[in-house]
């Protein structure tokens, strides 16, 4: 029973990790909390749903299209709402981000209506036996596998490609990176593209996992993705993965005792980290530069 709860936690946590990656990558480069990220997640779920129900696509193709769509949305948001504000005070892009989030959420409410939709994907609901008493559904296995593949892919991209190197350089020092011939605007666009694609994938996976998609679905997962990013150390990519998994497990175990306030657990975690170790588990303390 306990082991099964841990497994549930890992499944949920891997989706938080995917969301957290989007927050942490953008924060690492722009020091901006991208509030619209939760709506990118919601949009990803809707695109996946439309591909599966309206166009009768197989699930893997729908997932890829949803990721591409989210990617496009993320890049567009950056170009329209954040880029013109890159030189203004801290609070201006934050307010703009909130504006984008509100706009997307309510546009989806008007277009799709407030009702919760099912996400009909036909998987053989076989369960796999691990050891004597632990059962894992094929759906959980699928979500874990896809999350792991995406995260390994991301790790490869960041550490083995030139683009990844440019991203790391930009995160470290924007001006120095620019002097080294890195095109900052392109790096920022790519960061949004990758983060949004992962967020969109998380949206589809959660939509399938809980068999529900609605315009407000991004709110709490978005918040929890951010908590996971802070837990791991904001700006730190392995931290976001670790933070997501830990948060998922904590939440599932916590929900056993206080199911009514399930969503409050992540929030309590946030307050505790901020009090005890604001740099997060894997984050380093950075001196503020003048």
């Amino acid at each position: 029973m306990f082991a099964e709860q841990i497994l549930n936690g890992l499944t949920l946590g891997s989706t938080y990790a995917l969301i957290a990656l989007g927050y942490t990558m953008v924060y690492g480069i722009l020091e901006l909390i991208n509030f619209a990220h939760s709506e990118i997640y919601m949009t990803g779920a809707f695109i996946g749903l439309i591909m599966v129900t309206v166009y009768k696509m197989p699930f893997p193709l729908a997932l890829i299209i949803a990721m591409a769509g989210s990617c496009l949305l993320g890049v567009t948001i950056e170009k329209v709402a954040y880029k013109p504000l890159r030189k203004s005070t801290r609070i201006a892009p934050l307010i703009s981000a909130i504006g984008v989030s509100i706009f997307l959420q309510n546009a989806a409410l008007i277009l799709a209506g407030p009702q919760v939709r099912a996400f009909p994907v036909n998987f053989k609901s076989a369960s796999i036996k691990l050891g004597q008493s632990i059962q894992m559904s094929s759906l959980q296995l699928l979500i874990l596998l896809i999350s792991i593949i995406l995260m390994v892919g991301l790790h490869f991209l960041i550490h083995r490609t030139k683009l990844g190197q440019a991203m790391r350089a930009t995160a470290q020092d924007k001006e120095a990176a620019q002097l080294m011939g890195i095109k900052i605007d392109r790096v920022i666009s790519f960061t949004f593209a990758i983060g949004s694609a992962l967020g969109g994938a998380a949206g589809v996976l959660v939509g399938v996992y809980f068999n529900s998609v609605d315009p407000m679905m991004g709110f709490f997962p978005g918040l929890k993705g951010f908590v996971a990013a802070v837990l791991g150390g904001i700006g730190n990519i392995p931290g976001a993965m670790l933070g997501g998994l830990i948060l998922g497990i904590v939440e599932v175990l916590g929900a056993v005792y206080m199911s009514r306030y399930k969503d409050a657990i992540a929030f309590a975690v946030l307050i505790i980290i901020l009090l005890v170790k604001p740099t997060g588990l894997l984050g380093r303390k950075l001196q503020e530069k003048v």
Binding site: A81, L85, S88, A92, V100, I102, F103, Q105, I110
Partner: peptide, 20 residues
């Protein structure tokens, strides 16, 4: 009246860009 919240969203972004 239904579109009020959509309007607030656009308002926040537009004000930040053109008249912060």
């Amino acid at each position: 009246a239904q579109y009020r919240m959509v309007f607030y969203g656009i308002l926040l972004v537009a004000m930040m860009i053109w008249r912060p």
